[in-house]
């Protein structure tokens, strides 16, 4: 069964690693739905959050291949119900068309969106949520003419309260001390 999975990988900050990771998807003909990379809570350790639609078996295999990469510390995958995730979207709309409408305030309230910048020419609106939510707001705002729209990749935390990486890093540092 094809489902949505979130793959999380922690890695050293190494040039070219992103390439190595995306190559693993390309060769399996898997399309990456969303990809976010940035420094994790631990300095020097990068976190990749990758959303992919695939079977559990495919995701398991690709995750193992990611973890096999020399610079990857740890990789795991989680199904939709095991993560809490968000995306952020920005919408730029002509201010004039907003002010002519009497629905605008209601839309903003219903969607829990907020205004980041307001000028006589345009207004920038921000909303966080799941893709469906940010998409729905886009459809509503489109009646006013959206000048620009952009959506980020996914960021996610796990439902389980176990922090995989910290424990893992402790374990390997211990291993190194014992063996050197």
């Amino acid at each position: 069964m094809i489902q949505e999975f979130t793959i999380t990988a922690f890695s050293e900050n190494q040039i070219g690693l992103l390439n190595r990771i995306t190559n693993l998807f390309t060769r399996r003909h898997l399309n990456i739905e969303s990809l976010t990379v940035g420094e994790s809570a631990i300095k020097g350790v990068h976190k990749f959050t990758i959303v992919v639609r695939a079977t559990r078996e495919q995701v398991e295999k690709v995750t193992k291949q990611i973890e096999k990469l020399v610079e990857v510390l740890k990789a795991f995958y989680l199904a939709e119900d095991e993560v809490i995730h968000q995306e952020i979207a920005l919408y730029k709309v002509r201010t004039e068309s907003l002010t002519q409408s009497n629905r605008f305030e209601a839309i903003m309230r219903e969607h829990n969106a907020r205004i980041l910048e307001l000028t006589p020419k345009y207004t920038v609106i921000e909303k966080t949520g799941h893709k469906e939510d940010t998409q729905k707001l886009f459809q509503e705002l489109d009646q006013f003419g959206v000048l620009q729209f952009t959506r980020s990749g996914r960021i996610a935390v796990t439902r389980s309260n176990y922090e995989y990486l910290t424990a893992y890093l402790k374990e390997i540092e211990k291993f190194n001390e014992q063996n050197s």
């Binding site: 020399v70 890093l169 063996n179 050197s180």
Partner: peptide, 8 residues
């Protein structure tokens, strides 16, 4: 080299 943190 005998140890790389991310490689076991």
């Amino acid at each position: 080299c005998t140890f790389i943190r991310s490689y076991r």
